[in-house]
Amino acid sequence: MTSPAGTTSRGRGAHKRRALGSRALFLGPGLFYVTAFMAIPIALIVSYAFLTRGRFGGVRLPLTLESFTRALDPVYLQVLGNSLLIATTTTVLALLIGYPVAYAIARMPSRWRTIALVLVVLPFWSNFLIRTYAWIVLLNSEGPLNKALLATGLRDEPIGLLYNRGAVIVGLLYAYLPLMILPLYASLERMDWSLLEAATNLGASRIRAFFDVTFPLSLPGAMIGAIFVFVPSLGNFIVPELLGGGKTVMVGNLIRDQFLKARDWPFGAVLALTMVTFLILLFALQAAVSRRINGPRAHA
């Protein structure tokens, strides 16, 4: 290590020191904060997964894989399978509903687009618990939907709309649908519509043109939307509790209970790692898909 100030001009050395100083001033506090309040906490979770449960919460030695083998119990595998099923169903429904909506907004005259998008996003900015609560009201056995059903005479008595898997899916869909529509819209809005015209001019049917031209071009947006919906759905414990009535247990409920009720932190850590692993696999899939889509075009 030589001192630049000693060998070259004194001014350049001072300048370098100042640049280093401002670099530390700008980057230091934020990176320190992210390390202390995100990286270290996540690293703690990973290490706790290999430790033994403490007698009154917390953890102790020795190192063990016991929590991992416990997670393979069919009871827990079923909860995990159930969570994946619910999150996947929610994501697929969001795509099916969100696609025509995003497409319609992208094809609107530009002065209508902003207001149409704001109307999609607005409910998303209200309190999550309140939005979930609204469905407790709506699906209640004495609620408006059941009253309407009784009034039409289709049913003689109220039906149980609340506290089942369907109610959980509707609640998640309601909460996260805007997160599907926004990225879909962003990718459709950038699209070159003349490609579609070219396809139909060359004799492709409108359906064929959609699946050969429009849909592949909107796939990156669909993948991002799918991640935005799937990730918060999988880890959710509020909607299953409030709309599933404790009968539909998801992995989020299990994790919450290990940390706040059962006080089995190593097992909770294993469950959390399992959940995060599925999310990382999903990100890897997304990266692979977008590489496949962008790859051929980069060469063309």
């Binding site: 934020g30 990176l31 992210v34 309040f37 995100m38 990286a39 270290i40 906490p41 996540i42 703690l44 979770i45 706790y48 990730v231 918060p232 999988l234 880890g235 414990f237 989020g252 994790i255 919450r256 940390f259 932190w265 909770g268 850590a269 959390a272 959940m275 995060v276 999310l279």
Partner: peptide, 20 residues
């Protein structure tokens, strides 16, 4: 790295912070 806290699942961040 700096933008990761915005995309980490809130439940994972929550239990990590509780543990820390």
């Amino acid at each position: 790295y700096a933008l990761t806290p915005a995309i980490v699942p809130d439940l994972a961040l929550a239990i990590g912070l509780l543990v820390m």
